[in-house]
Amino acid sequence: MSGRLQDKRALVTGATSNIGRAIAEMFAAEGAHVIVSGRSAGRGAEVVGAIRARGGRADFVQADLDGSAAASRALAEAATSALGGGIDILVNNAGVYPGDSTADTDEQTFDRVYSVNVKAPFLLTAAVAPAMAEAGGGAIINLGSWVARLGIPVGALYSSSKGAMETLTRAWAAEFGPRGVRVNAISPGVVHTPVPGEVHPGDVMMNGTPAGGVGSPEAIAHAAVYLAGDESAFVHGIVLDVDGGRTTAAVIAA
């Protein structure tokens, strides 16, 4: 790696698996000191251990981002302390995905999805962005999803929560950009690490795309490094599609 994030201090939520883990590991490989945050202390220790084994800097901060102001503030404070006094990069990645139909979604599920996927990152950003601005600037990266812009017949609740995050990205860019804090988002397609012999239920949705299949978590991490680094200094309020062409080209099913 080339040290594109050398000595930056980063907080990545939902960093104990899949996209979040890939972002945390790549940030560390690029020279950042990374706070790996998630609910599982065991998985968090595994990610931190893997980063440190490769010479990177990482610490784990356990957090259950349930949408309460207390949980978001506590994570911001703990991460700031562990990083030595400040956060330069925030990645709002943590989220939950229920795939039920609208009629099968109960009120408790509705509230939980919006609490975790929208309210928690909203309150975490509120706790982090002003301090970034006071320190001279920073970068915030939100995770959206291709299903926020293309309707599919299941998961309407999740889709709407990701649409909210993409809207917040533009609003926060206008709010915090003039104070030196760049806010952007990444919209992944179907992304996971294939397991031999297993078929992921989302795989079929990538058939007929220009990429021809699912993406890797590392593909999203590369985009996150770009949006976190100096190369994107003139980039504000975008949603960067990293979806194998799912939302930009007509999908011709075989």
Score class of each variant (00 low, 15 high):
residue 12 V to K: 00
residue 97 Y to M: 12
residue 19 I to F: 07
residue 194 P to V: 02
residue 61 V to T: 06
residue 178 P to L: 04
residue 124 L to I: 09
residue 103 A to V: 14
residue 151 G to W: 09
residue 127 A to L: 09
residue 103 A to L: 14
residue 54 R to A: 15
residue 92 N to C: 14
residue 137 G to S: 06
residue 203 D to Q: 06
residue 153 P to Q: 00
residue 12 V to F: 13
residue 95 G to N: 03
residue 4 R to A: 11
residue 152 I to E: 12
residue 11 L to A: 06
residue 228 A to R: 01
residue 155 G to H: 02
residue 41 A to K: 11
residue 188 P to M: 06
residue 166 E to R: 00
residue 64 D to T: 07
residue 5 L to Q: 05
residue 140 I to P: 13
residue 86 G to E: 01
residue 159 S to G: 13
residue 201 P to V: 01
residue 167 T to R: 03
residue 232 S to K: 02
residue 60 F to S: 02
residue 53 A to Y: 11
residue 183 V to Q: 02
residue 90 L to S: 06
residue 96 V to I: 15
residue 132 M to H: 08
residue 155 G to Q: 02
residue 139 A to W: 07
residue 77 E to N: 11
residue 81 S to W: 11
residue 211 A to T: 04
residue 73 R to I: 10
residue 50 A to L: 12
residue 237 G to V: 05
residue 32 A to K: 03
residue 150 L to I: 14
residue 142 N to Y: 06
residue 251 V to P: 01
residue 223 A to F: 10
residue 236 H to M: 14
residue 160 S to I: 09
residue 254 A to L: 14
residue 17 S to H: 13
residue 158 Y to Q: 00
residue 199 V to Y: 03
residue 188 P to G: 06
residue 69 A to Q: 14
residue 195 V to G: 03
residue 165 M to L: 13
residue 97 Y to V: 10
residue 94 A to I: 01
residue 64 D to Q: 12
residue 13 T to C: 11
residue 227 L to Q: 02
residue 25 E to T: 14
residue 78 A to V: 07
residue 21 R to Q: 15
residue 221 A to E: 04
residue 223 A to D: 04
residue 213 G to V: 04
residue 253 A to H: 15
residue 3 G to H: 10
residue 105 T to E: 03
residue 115 S to T: 00
residue 75 L to M: 08
residue 73 R to S: 15
residue 47 V to N: 08
residue 1 M to Q: 12
residue 57 R to K: 15
residue 99 G to F: 08
residue 199 V to G: 04
residue 143 L to K: 00
residue 1 M to L: 14
residue 103 A to Y: 11
residue 70 A to N: 11
residue 136 G to V: 05
residue 196 P to I: 00
residue 175 E to S: 10
residue 30 E to M: 08
residue 79 A to G: 10
residue 250 A to H: 01
residue 244 G to P: 15
residue 114 Y to P: 09
residue 25 E to N: 06
residue 100 D to P: 05
residue 140 I to A: 04
residue 122 F to G: 00
residue 29 A to N: 05
residue 26 M to F: 12
residue 245 G to M: 03
residue 198 E to G: 03
residue 211 A to Q: 11
residue 135 A to K: 10
residue 180 G to S: 05
residue 242 V to I: 09
residue 73 R to H: 15
residue 182 R to Y: 12
residue 192 H to F: 11
residue 156 A to D: 08
residue 131 A to R: 15
residue 97 Y to G: 05
residue 207 N to S: 12
residue 120 A to M: 07
residue 49 G to Q: 08
residue 117 N to G: 06
residue 158 Y to E: 01
residue 65 L to C: 08
residue 7 D to I: 01
residue 83 L to R: 00
residue 91 V to F: 12
residue 237 G to P: 13
residue 36 V to K: 03
residue 40 S to L: 10
residue 239 V to Q: 02
residue 38 G to T: 02
residue 152 I to P: 08
residue 191 V to W: 04
residue 230 D to P: 14
